[in-house]
Write a protein that binds this DNA or RNA. Structure first.
Length: 471
DNA sequence: TGAAATGTTGGGGCG
DNA sequence: ACGCCCCAACATTTC
């Protein structure tokens, strides 16, 4: 007899190494793959159009991949608990499978679904989004790690499951209604920003290209925003177009047998994958970080409003070239190099003295890879309010950071074209450009490019004082 | 996955 | 030859 399991896609938009999907495939003769557009998510103010655009792409790719295997993606819209109950009734499915999430919103939603379907069918969540599930790594004392380095040491000693390939062929029930894939505009979003194509095909291509061309140099080049030293895989990991275990083993396999410096690149990249796991387990176990400081005493920090400065930061008009380049890269591409994310976050919190949550929100609105766990973790790190935080006195100097990581100014010049003719020597501190050079180099401050909106040395002192009041 | 202030050392210019 | 000063280079401390 035919039995059916519904696979509910959420942040696992792939067939490859998809834990719940493979379990459904193994456990039933027919799998019903469904994605539900949830108004509650789509209308959230921090759901940015670039991410919705990427999502639509990923769904189209997912549907195409399913069709190539004899399946098709069922699209519904509404409240997940209602739509799933309806779909269970339509199909007579014996179970709903999904991969677990770590976000408070998702956990509450999934609890509602389980409650709604409790007497109708089985509902099972699987671990899929990490190298190591968020509840699987604990200290000897049984507590959750809140410092990265010991977390990583423990994690590296635990084997990462080998990725499993996608099921070969699907059998799906005939005649199920499915909505057409909506357009971005139909979902109430619009953007001109060009982003990478969504889907697991592009994800695998990018992974393979990165491993082949950049992995070996990752330890040396990942911090240089003018180079393509990073993997660019963050949006694919964000939407589950790429299995993190697939990513891990691609790096492992490429460096098998190598030791020492030869695998330094892979080691550092794997460490970045573990940062992702680390912040996911932090959000899972300390859900209050969504709204407040991990270190609760830092909720008392007296951040300033400084609305004009916030607008200047968002627009990339702070007068600090590396900061402005980063913010403009974000605005025009929906992505920002990680080193520069740290610099602009330090600048917002420690130079403009603005609450990290406002920066976090802006990132969520604009980043194609915007993810609560990673974004919140990164912002709290920069603001010194989080786990494993940089001590509060670690304040980036936007000039020396620029000189160190963009020594020729190539990155600055790419995104801040008005500085294109400024010589290397002054590219990160145009206010020190001798007056007689300003006209010939088309860098008249206040006309061609803004004066610095703050004095770094002075703001640094104010930031230190702000934190000192809490200690 | 800092930066700035302060301390120490040592070479060289100079009287 | 010698002490003194300057200052760069490096190390240490402090925030």
């Amino acid at each position: 007899m035919t039995d059916r399991i519904i696979h509910w896609f959420r942040r696992d938009l792939r067939l490859d190494d998809n834990t719940a999907l493979l379990a459904a495939y193994d456990g039933a003769t027919e799998v019903v793959p469904v994605f539900i557009f949830d108004r509650a998510i789509l209308s959230r103010p921090d759901t940015g159009p670039v991410r919705v655009k990427f999502l639509l792409d990923a769904l189209a790719a997912l549907d195409a991949n399913l069709r190539a295997r004899g399946g098709a993606l069922i699209l519904r819209a509404g409240l997940p608990e209602e739509e799933l109950a309806r779909l269970v009734a339509e199909t007579g499915a014996k179970a709903v499978y999904y991969n677990r999430d770590v976000e408070p919103f998702a956990l509450a939603r999934d609890a509602r679904v389980a409650e709604r379907l409790r007497e109708t069918c089985a509902v099972r969540g699987f671990e899929d989004g990490d190298l190591h599930p968020p509840d699987s790594i604990k200290t000897k004392g049984g507590t959750v790690y809140t410092v990265f380095t010991p977390y990583k040491r423990t994690a590296l000693a635990i084997p990462v499951p080998k990725p499993r390939s996608a099921p070969e062929a699907f059998r799906v029930p005939a005649g199920l209604a499915s909505n057409p894939l909506p357009t971005l505009a139909e979902l109430g979003h619009a953007t001109e920003v060009q982003i990478p194509p969504g889907g697991e095909g592009p994800a695998r291509e990018r992974l393979e290209g990165f491993v082949r061309r950049h992995l070996a140099d990752y330890d040396r080049e990942r911090d240089l925003p003018a180079k393509t030293g990073t993997s660019g895989l963050s949006p694919y990991l964000r939407f589950g177009c790429l299995s993190p275990r697939r990513a891990f083993h691609a790096a492992e396999d490429a460096t098998a047998g190598l030791t020492g410096p030869a695998r330094a690149g892979a080691d550092v990249w794997i460490s970045e994958l573990l940062w992702r796991d680390f912040y996911r387990q932090i959000l899972f176990h300390f859900s209050y970080v969504e709204n407040g400081s991990f270190k609760k005493s830092y909720d008392e920090l007296a951040w300033e409003r400084n609305d004009d400065l916030f607008e200047a930061w968002k627009a990339g008009r702070t007068g600090f070239p590396i900061v402005d380049a980063g913010m403009r890269q974000l605005a025009t591409t929906g992505w920002m190099h990680n080193r520069v994310r740290m610099i602009v976050a330090s600048f917002l919190t420690k130079d403009l003295l603005i609450d990290w949550r406002r920066g976090e929100r802006h990132f969520m609105e604009t980043l194609v890879d915007g993810d609560l766990a990673a974004n919140n973790g990164g912002w709290q790190w920069a603001a010194s309010t989080g786990t494993d935080a940089q001590p509060y006195f670690r304040i980036f100097n936007p000039v020396s950071q620029g000189q160190k990581f963009d020594p020729t100014g190539a990155y600055v010049k790419k995104y801040v074209p008005e500085l294109a003719s400024v010589p290397e020597k002054w590219i990160h501190e145009p206010w020190n450009l001798p007056l007689e050079y300003r006209k010939p180099f088309r860098c008249v401050l206040g006309t061609d490019y803004p004066y610095p909106v703050v004095d770094h040395a002075r703001q640094r002192e104010k930031a230190l004082a702000l934190f000192k009041k809490i200690e």
